[in-house]
């Protein structure tokens, strides 16, 4: 089977996020108030051949931790893209 997977990579809690902070500061100037805790990250979408959804997810999580994220500063979470 072929499974669609999404991986989200975000900075770990406590790691400074200058990009998120800059976006947060820009929002009030556009008239958006009350927005806080903005964190910027990356999203990856791909397909994996696997014999079960569990195995597809395990492969995705493994490659996300090995390549798509830097575990020193980032967390990576893989999930199945149920919509596709």
């Amino acid at each position: 089977m072929n499974y669609s997977v999404i991986v989200e990579v975000t900075l770990r809690p406590g790691i400074a996020d200058p990009e998120g902070a800059t976006i947060e500061r820009a929002l009030p100037t556009l008239g958006f108030s009350g927005v806080s805790l903005v964190r910027a990250g990356k999203l990856f979408r791909f397909s994996i051949d696997a014999d079960s959804p569990e195995n597809a997810l395990a492969t995705a999580q493994s490659l996300a931790e090995r390549l798509l994220s830097n575990p020193v500063i980032e967390d990576a979470v893989a999930r199945l893209d149920e919509g596709r």
Partner: peptide, 17 residues
């Protein structure tokens, strides 16, 4: 070298972007 694990830590975007 940090990505390869030959040195500790990581280099992030500059403060102030």
């Amino acid at each position: 070298l940090t990505e390869a694990g030959l040195l500790p830590g990581a280099l992030q975007k500059n403060r102030g972007l």
